[in-house]
C-alpha cells in the first residue's frame, strides 16, 4: 500500500481554538451589561448623585466632565434645565427596564397562549384567533396608544398596557406557526395515541419546544419596547415628565443635538447596549436551553 504522508494533519489538529474563552465572553459581556443596568434600576436612589428631577438653571447644558467646561459634579453633564444626566440615566433604567419587562411578560404570555391554542387546535378556533391577530396588526399602533393615553391619562401603566395591546400579535403569529409544525410531529402523534389530553399536549409537548423562538423574539422585543416608549414620550403619551425614562431622555435632547449632544447620546448608548446585551443573552440562553446543544 502506498505510504502517503498525511498532509498538514498534525498542524491542524495542533491548532487550539480559543473556543472556551470566546464562548465565555459572549456570555460574560452581555451578562455584565444587563447586571449593571439592573443594579442601576434597583438601587437608583442609592446610586444617583442627585434626584432625577432636581433643576439647577445655573448649571444648564453643562458638558460631560471630560470636555472643556465640564465639571466632576456632573460627570455626564446636564440637560436644558440643569438636571444631572447621570442621575436621570440611573433612574431612567428603573422605568425603561421595568416597562420592557412588564410588556414582554404580558405580550409573550398572551401571544404564546393564543398562538399555541390556535396552532394546535386549528380549524375555526385558529381562523378566529388569527383574524383577531390580523386586525390587531393592521391597526396603527401609535394611534391606538395615543387614544388610550388620552382616555385614561398618561402614566406608567398606560404605557405598559398601550404597548402590550400592540405587542402580543407578532408573538401569536410566530408561535402559531411553530405549534402548527409541532402538531404534525411524530411525538405529538404518539402523545395523542397514548390518550394525552389536548391541554397536556400543549403544555408538556408543544410549549417546551417553542421556547427558542420565544426567547429570541423576547430579547428582540426589549429594544422595540424601549423605543416605542420613547416615541410615546415624544408624543406626550409616554412617561410624563419630570420622571426619567431612557426614551424621554433621548427625546429631550433631540432638538439640541448640535449644541448638547450628550443629552440624547448617553441614554441612546444605554438603550443600544441593553438591546445588544439582550440579543447576545438570548443566543446564549437558547443554546443552554436546548438539550441537544448543551454539551457542545
Amino acid at each position: 500500500m502506498a505510504t502517503t504522508k498525511l498532509m498538514g494533519l498534525d498542524k491542524v489538529s495542533g491548532v487550539k481554538r480559543p473556543k472556551s474563552i470566546f464562548l465565555n465572553l459572549t456570555f460574560i459581556i452581555p451578562a455584565v451589561v444587563l447586571l449593571v443596568a439592573m443594579i442601576m434600576a434597583i438601587f437608583a436612589p442609592l446610586l444617583a448623585p442627585y434626584p432625577y428631577d432636581q433643576i439647577a438653571l445655573t448649571d444648564r447644558l453643562m458638558p460631560p466632565a471630560f470636555m472643556e467646561g465640564g465639571s466632576t459634579a456632573h460627570i455626564l453633564g446636564t440637560d436644558l434645565v440643569g438636571r444631572d444626566i447621570l442621575s436621570r440615566l440611573i433612574y431612567g433604567a428603573q422605568i425603561s427596564l421595568s416597562v420592557a419587562l412588564m410588556v414582554i411578560v404580558i405580550t409573550a404570555g398572551v401571544g404564546t397562549a393564543l398562538g399555541i391554542v390556535a396552532g394546535y387546535l386549528g380549524g375555526r378556533t385558529d381562523g378566529f384567533l388569527m383574524r383577531v391577530t390580523d386586525i390587531s396588526l393592521a391597526f396603527p399602533a401609535i394611534l391606538i396608544a395615543l387614544l388610550f393615553a388620552a382616555t385614561i391619562g398618561p402614566g406608567y401603566w398606560t404605557v405598559v398596557i398601550a404597548i402590550s395591546m400592540l405587542g402580543w400579535a407578532p408573538y401569536a403569529r410566530l408561535i402559531r406557526g411553530e405549534a402548527l409544525k409541532l402538531r404534525e410531529t411524530d411525538f405529538v402523534a404518539q402523545a395523542r395515541i397514548i390518550g394525552t389530553s389536548p391541554v397536556r399536549i400543549m403544555v408538556r409537548h408543544i410549549f417546551p419546544n417553542i421556547i427558542n423562538p420565544l426567547i429570541i423574539m423576547s430579547t428582540l422585543a426589549v429594544g422595540m419596547v424601549i423605543l416605542t416608549e420613547a416615541v410615546l414620550s415624544y408624543l406626550g403619551a409616554g412617561i410624563p415628565p419630570p420622571a426619567a425614562s431612557w426614551g424621554n431622555m433621548v427625546n429631550d435632547g433631540r432638538s439640541l443635538l448640535d449644541v448638547a449632544w450628550w443629552i440624547s447620546t448617553f441614554p441612546g448608548v444605554a438603550i443600544g447596549l441593553v438591546v445588544m446585551a439582550g440579543n447576545f443573552m438570548g443566543d446564549w440562553l437558547r443554546d443552554k436551553l436546548d438539550p441537544r446543544l448543551r454539551q457542545i
Binding site: T185, D186, F187, A189, Q190, A191, I193, I194, R204, H205, P208, N209, P291, R292
Partner: peptide, 14 residues
Amino acid sequence: SVQQNPWSSMNPRM
C-alpha cells in the same frame, strides 16, 4: 405503538 422514526417520535425536551 412504536413509530418508524426513532429520531422524531420522542419529545426532544423530555
